[in-house]
Structure formats: structure tokens, C-alpha cells
Write a protein that binds this DNA or RNA. Sequence first.
DNA 1: ATCCTAAATAGGATAGATTCCTATAAGCGT
DNA 2: ACGCTTATAGGAATCTATCCTATTTAGGAT
Lengths: 153, 153
Amino acid sequence: MLKVDGHELERRLELFREAARAAGIKLTHQRLEIFREVAGSLEHPSAESVHRALSASMPTLSHDTVYRTLWMLTDLGLVSTLGPKRESVRFDANPEPHHHFVCLRCGLARDFVSAELNELRIPDSVSDFGSIQATHVEVHGICNDCQAQQPAD
Amino acid sequence: MLKVDGHELERRLELFREAARAAGIKLTHQRLEIFREVAGSLEHPSAESVHRALSASMPTLSHDTVYRTLWMLTDLGLVSTLGPKRESVRFDANPEPHHHFVCLRCGLARDFVSAELNELRIPDSVSDFGSIQATHVEVHGICNDCQAQQPAD
DNA sequence: ATCCTAAATAGGATAGATTCCTATAAGCGT
DNA sequence: ACGCTTATAGGAATCTATCCTATTTAGGAT
């Protein structure tokens, strides 16, 4: 199990404590442990694996609390999600090289093309993870419709 | 509902017919309609929305068929998925700008950093979709562990 | 055109992920 | 320490995706 350096973890925990205080959010034992688990891992855990890791020391921890906490951390900007959040799998039948704009609120996904972005230089170290098959750019933002509904954050 | 140009759609359908023939895969009505639906949309539909769109003209179409067909098209290389396929949501508490290597088989996700990739120029046209919040590069491939288990494809 | 067989489908059951509901418990300002 | 407000536990409900199997179909052979 890969771990974040202890000093860095403490730094992230302090950021969380500050952000929680600023937002008027209570610092419960559950929230601190859940944040410590996700901030301390290099493996981008799922809610389920966070729950599993903590249930040894907190046998009554509920799934609901893990999910609520992780989404709350996402709202605070301390955590993000890989890919378009929740939702179901989305399919893409565009055979040309292209890139994606993805709305963080509603999941809307649109293609855009860019010859320049098709030719990115990926650091050599990445091939230590495995063989590279494709590379593309993901732009995350808020789509026009979602902005119209809820202008600011 | 945004649609792909009719001529382009026919071209994609022809590619599918060829690929199916080459792979010894039967060209059923269901498969053709499902492919037409996903290849004709600019909105990267989910399996559920494909099913919904087709159920008017094919009331007995099953969910299973839609899923099987979409994964089959993915295996043929005619369709890809947005984000790490299936699985649950994955969380990321790394506050520094970074990019991802994602294994297409097992979903393993690892961070890597690159000052150069942090400074990508995104086409102006993308801001027509909405406000941009973050940009990062996703490298898709097969991780070392998965390659060891099943060397070639 | 008809037959045959392997492959594909429908439909319901099942598994897994995520959220909802509500009575109880705990944080934190005073 | 007290009380108000927010958070939690636990189970029920929902939703996504896959599995199972009897029936149907595509497409090559006749």
C-alpha cells in the first residue's frame, strides 16, 4: 500500500482543519480519519476501500458517512474525482483523435480537436507504470447550462 | 439532441460492418441500431440513454444486449469510454497540479507531474462550452501487473 | 428457399455501488 | 456543563451493471 510522506500528510490535514473551520464544518473523528485515509494514499481509493480500511479501527463507520464526507471534501475543493463524477459509463464513438470538456456538475461531455494537443510529450517515467496506449486532455469546468442555473459557487 | 453529420455516420457504420465481418461477428438488427445510436450522437451517451432512445422503435430491447454490444464495440476498437471504465468513483486528494496514468484493464490510477503539461494551451473555442476550471492529461494504457497476467491482446 | 448450428437476445434474477431516511449521538459556541 | 444544530449509524431503497438460461436468429451449407 503506497503512502504519502508523513510530513506532507500533516500539511494536508492542517489545510483540512483550516478549511473546515472557515466553512463552519464540524471536525468529527470520522471526518478526520476519512480525510487522513484518502489524503494519505497514492492509489486514489474508492469510497468502499476507504470504508474497508477504516472499519478495523472504526467498526461502526457507515457507508453513508464515508460518501457524505468525500463529497463534502470535494465541495471544499480538497479532493477531486477521477473522470466524470458518479454516473454511469459513457461511450465515445468518435474515431478521430480528440479531447474532452467535461462539466463537473452535470457530467456533460463534449469533444474538441487540437493538432497541438495530439502531440504531447509524456515524461519517460510514465512508462514505468505500464505500456501507453493513448493520451488525451481533459478540461474540467462548469457548462453554460449549469452556470445559468446556479451562477456562482 | 446533437447529431453527427449523416455522411460521416454512414462512414462509421460501414467501418462497423467491415470490422464485424472481419471478426466473425453477426450483424444483428440490435447491434446496428445500437451502433447507429452511439455513433450518431455527439453527447457520449450512457448505456441507459442508448436503451431509452431505442426502446420506442424496439420495445423488447434488453439492457443486457445494449451493454454487451457497447463493450463488444469497445473491444473492436470502434468505441471508447470516458474515464476509467465501470467501477466506482475514485477520489484524489493531491493538491498539486498533476496528471494521471490509468490502466484500462484494472483501473489502477497513478499520478505523475510535468511542468510542461501544466501549461497547455487550450483552444479558445472550448470556452464556448462553459468556464474552465482545470486541465489535465490522461494517459491510458495497461499497467505492468495486467501485462504480466495477460501479455498480449 | 430451407436447414443447421453456433452465437445472440429477452427478460428476470442478482450483485454491487450509492443515496435516502430517521432516530440517536456528538461538536462547539456560550 | 448546556443546548442547539449538525453529523452519524444502520438499514431500506434506488440505480447501475452483470449473470443466467430458455428461446430466437444470422449466416453458411445444402
